[in-house]
Design a protein around this nucleic acid. Structure first.
Lengths: 246, 246
DNA sequence: TATGGTTGTCTATATTAATAGACATTATGG
DNA sequence: CCATAATGTCTATTAATATAGACAACCATA
């Protein structure tokens, strides 16, 4: 289905074991090993990638660290977790509904919040004067105890002064908005990019450094088209995919 | 605007110089150095990232290799190229129109094509029997002489037998469809993921290994809702972004 | 219970990545 | 034209990455 066989590359600033770990992770997510529930033997993988068995072991150790596989002496390397959450992006995108029944337990944590003046960029997006007060919410979302997104969201302070408390209590933007008198809102635009995770995101999303994140920059408005929220959300790229249905 | 300062990480399988190169590339794309048109001095960057100057030099050498910067002794490191093409994803997404006036020169190259039986996955997506003949087109798209996407597209062979020749001549799917009697088509779904570029994509997209690509899996139908094309397109993540307008 | 297949551990060595320091070379501005 | 601020080059050293080989420990099963 995908574009097929590929090789690992040397001297490119990305260690072989990391490239191999990424490839194996992708294969697991792709269901390539579903028949056995196990990753192929280290010796086989080493031959496949054209590297030493020890290099493969480094890769598997990294995946074990992430909780994706578990090696058992004598048996093999068992697949523990295999997931790629799907997030539909529509005019009515909501985080918790988006996950739907893909996870049993959903959670929204408020990490931090502050009131600050709107930057030039932000004022343009929210259509408010530059320097006008906005409330910034730093949140972490989890599904089945695993972090799936780290978000930074801004709201016009004059209209949504109580958003911090409302979100802190409920863990849901949708519910928080409702508590503040906004019963409905619409997603008008989403910009998607990808980059390496860095700094705090690495820690918050419990990623191994070098991991890739999908970045979604989203603007939500009320039904009248007045911007109510601008958010930058980061997702582990190997755990999620976005689906745009038109 | 963005989430702020971040640090580079050691012993993570990604070399410091590559992490730093990625960060500088992102800063350039973000316009952080627009005031001077230059990257900060090596010494400054070294202090900023907490690494040796030689490490920064490795990063800058990689960016110079990509054609993004050019170092001039005595003057500094000049920014040569700064771009992030924006691709709107809508119900009427078309590649060439999507680029619009973001590039002067647009080009579509046919790398390879073949007729083959539909896999299980593909038959489900195109709603045709498994094993039914499909035509696969491997294409490379360029803007201003730089490759911006590498695509693999499948078409039902019975309906679009001449798609290879039509695309080869015109370099445009839209025009090729028109030549084959399909005057309009619609994008019904797009799945977006991100991963490391590998193998042929690296070469075709002229990326330095370890680079990130955005992957868009798209399904197009005719106005009646009959699938006409399924395509997997890979874009250099540091050059493009997707915008979903709802 | 014996055997083959698999992961775990150890030693040794070569290559690459990163640090450290010194100094040469070149461009710019006073 | 000189001082300053950059990049360019060189040597040396340490740490991380990768290869190679050997063998132990463990599991499943015939």
């Amino acid at each position: 289905m995908d574009t097929g066989q590929t090789n690992v590359h040397r001297q490119n600033g990305v260690a072989l074991w990391r490239q191999i770990a990424d490839r194996i992770r992708a294969s697991i997510a792709n269901g390539d090993y579903d028949a056995t529930g196990k990753v192929p033997p280290e010796f086989t993988l080493a031959a496949q990638f054209g590297v030493n068995r020890h290099t493969v072991r480094s890769a598997l150790a990294a995946l074990a660290q992430e909780g994706i596989v578990r090696s058992v002496q004598g048996r093999g390397t068992l697949i523990e977790r295999k997931e790629r959450l799907n997030f539909p992006i529509t005019r009515r995108t909501r985080f918790s509904e988006g996950i739907g029944d893909q996870a049993r337990e959903k959670e929204g944590l408020l990490l931090h919040s502050a009131e600050e003046p709107a930057s030039a960029d932000l004022s343009a997006r929210l259509q408010i004067p530059e320097g006008a007060p906005v409330i910034r919410l730093e949140t972490l979302r989890k599904a089945d105890r695993r972090p799936v997104s780290r978000s930074t969201a801004w709201f016009p302070a004059d209209r949504f002064g109580g958003i911090k408390e409302a979100y802190g209590k409920t863990g849901s933007i949708t519910v928080a908005f409702r508590m503040l008198g906004l019963s409905d809102y619409l997603r008008v635009s989403t910009e998607v990019t990808a980059t390496h995770a860095d700094g705090a995101d690495l820690a918050d999303l419990q990623l191994s450094p070098g991991a890739i994140i999908l970045v979604a920059r989203a603007l939500n408005t009320d039904p009248e088209g007045v911007p109510v929220q601008y958010a930058v959300s980061r997702f582990p790229a190997d755990m999620v995919q976005f689906t745009i249905e038109n």
